[in-house]
């Protein structure tokens, strides 16, 4: 018993020792520490202190301006009773799953296709990747025009002779979220493709030669040898896309403004509108904290793992 209690204290003992050693070093050789200090303080204030501040606000009754009165979990209860929030959460679910799924699927397919000794590879790659350099606002503005039922793609296809063609996702409350997904996938696929292509090129070609000599068909080799080795690349891609999905704000604003109605509401737009337009800062803060927790749940283990393996 005693032993296990002692063990559980170990991290703190270590931290204490670290701090002591740090202070000693700071006295003896302060320059490096002074150089990194501004960035460190900036991060401590702008990241950690601000998050605590938001956390505090979420436990108050702040509306237009912050108030520091204790309201307990009240705002969280309100938040979770709002249909709008449910809409935002379920949209995030749909958006997240399909956006990540399609980006990864198409990205992987394109990477495999590009890895077939394609003659114009150097020409094709930049074409697939350029959307990543655009702002979501630009992408949204452009696609809003393309998806415009009266003037955009719908009319083009109808002009071609398919009179009954309808492609009005952007104004259809049931489908608008899919329009957002489409555009999101268009923007990120090239990036995922680049990740997978690097992964494919990183595989030891001797392994593939060995499999070829054993008589494995190209499909077998992809299925049993290459794809299993791409799982960490896939993990990175999923993490990054999930992170983008949770943060995504600009794309929805530029494309649909969260509408029609609340059809494309996402937590990010929810937080913004409750905080800045509806003057319900405390609820906005509570939703921000929920988003933060989700990101921590997704990124945290990944970062921790990366950090640990790196140290070894």
């Amino acid at each position: 018993m005693r032993n296990s209690r002692l063990l559980s204290l170990k991290p703190f003992v270590l931290l204490g020792r670290d701090i002591k050693a740090f202070l000693l070093r700071a006295r003896q050789h302060p320059t490096p520490i002074l150089v990194i200090l501004p960035s460190f303080l900036l991060t401590i204030i702008f990241v950690y202190f601000f998050i605590l501040w938001t956390l505090t606000l979420s436990f108050t009754t702040s509306t237009l301006i912050p108030q520091y009165n204790w309201a307990g979990w009240k705002q969280y209860f309100i938040l979770w009773s709002l249909p709008n929030w449910y809409k935002a959460i379920s949209n995030l679910g749909i958006f997240g799953v399909l956006y990540i799924g399609f980006s990864c699927g198409i990205g992987l397919l394109l990477a495999i296709l590009l890895d077939q000794r394609i003659r114009f590879e150097g020409f094709i790659r930049p074409i697939l990747l350029y959307p990543m350099s655009l702002s979501f606002i630009v992408t949204g503005t452009a696609w809003k025009w393309l998806l415009n039922p009266g003037l955009g793609i719908e009319r083009v296809v109808r002009n071609w002779g398919w009179e009954s063609f309808t492609f009005n996702w952007i104004i259809d409350p049931d489908r608008a979220i899919y329009a957002v997904i489409l555009v999101g996938v268009w923007q990120s696929t090239g990036f995922v493709m680049t990740l997978f292509l690097a992964g494919l090129r990183g595989i030891d070609s001797d392994i593939i030669k060995a499999a070829l000599l054993e008589g494995a068909s190209i499909y077998k080799i992809y299925l049993r040898i290459i794809l299993p080795q791409l799982r960490y690349t896939l993990l990175s891609a999923v993490i990054i896309l999930a992170h983008l999905a949770i943060k995504s704000y600009d794309l929805v604003i530029a494309l649909t403004g969260g509408g029609p109605g609340n059809a494309t509401e996402l937590p990010a737009t929810f937080m913004y509108s409750y905080t800045f337009t509806r003057s319900k800062m405390a609820i906005g803060s509570a939703s921000a904290i929920m988003m933060f927790m989700t990101v921590v749940a997704v990124i945290g283990p990944y970062l921790y793992n990366e950090f640990r393996t790196k140290k070894q």
């Binding site: 001797d206 392994i207 499999a211």
Partner: peptide, 30 residues
């Protein structure tokens, strides 16, 4: 595949995702 040649690579080229038994049996399974 049909030349009936086997090769041992400098980097060994073992399939990292398969255990030793699988590595050895992979060709026969094919």
């Amino acid at each position: 595949a049909n030349r009936n040649i086997a090769m041992v690579f400098q980097s060994y080229a073992l399939y990292p995702n398969m255990n030793v038994r699988k590595n050895i049996s992979f060709g026969m399974e094919i």
